[in-house]
Design a protein around this nucleic acid. Structure first.
Lengths: 127, 127
DNA sequence: CTGCATCCGCACAGATACTG
DNA sequence: CAGTATCTGTGCGGATGCAG
């Protein structure tokens, strides 16, 4: 692969480093248990706040709002507010969000396929 | 999909719940920043402890050992000790480990492909 | 070089209470 | 119902020192 750096030389270094640090930042945001479980729970459907709270087992009110804000900020989930009373807020994955979801699905699939191997490995290790 | 539960009824509930909690446990182990970065750094090569320390930018001595132990316990990395002096320890991904790596690669690819969208979304959100 | 143990600060996560 | 704010404690993660 030919990079901009190779074509245009050193002046692009700063850009590349900025892109890398941004990638790391995004990765740190997204590669955490709750964020991934929320994305997985949303799937290609629509869930209300309270539904997500039930769907993602063990998550607290606070962690859910925090992670939803973070995901919304990064443009991965869309937040639709219905101005009714009581209020009703629905969350759905955006295009990029669904792209990420595909990778999370793969990871979940991997987990279930390797349950046995991992359980065995653990027993071996613990003895 | 037809599950064991549907075929054989309620007695399998306990098994299923155990498998689910195990899956959650594994997911919690694996879905964290440092573990994923270590797996990505290893790739399909072999790295020493100190090399990993350099490769995974920003990781501390302690987090590296902790995560390596965890990954080894789950049978995702292989730890080869050369009884020399000074000691030399090499880490490689196991079969299951490489399977997981494929999903992490996908996630990294997604990150880089969506850098632009995400940066834009952030600017919009922050204003 | 690699690994383990200890200490410690800080950030994260839970609980609770209050507003729209 | 959804969200924000505040308080509190625990556990994560960094720094350091020591051993093999």
């Amino acid at each position: 692969m030919v990079t901009k750096q190779q074509l245009k030389g050193l002046p692009e270094d700063a850009d590349l480093r900025r892109a890398d640090s941004l990638a790391r930042e995004i990765f740190s945001d997204v590669a955490n248990k709750w964020a991934l479980l929320i994305i997985e729970a949303l799937g290609d459907g629509t869930l209300r706040f309270s539904e997500l709270r039930n769907e993602v087992e063990g998550i607290s009110h606070k962690m859910l709002t925090q992670n939803l804000r973070m995901l919304e900020r990064n443009g991965l989930v869309h937040r639709k507010v219905h101005p009714t009373v009581p209020p009703r807020v629905e969350y759905t994955l955006t295009g990029p969000g669904r792209g990420l979801r595909a990778t999370v699905d793969a990871m979940c699939g991997w987990t279930h396929q390797n349950l046995g191997h991992i359980e065995d490995a653990r027993h071996r290790f613990d003895s």
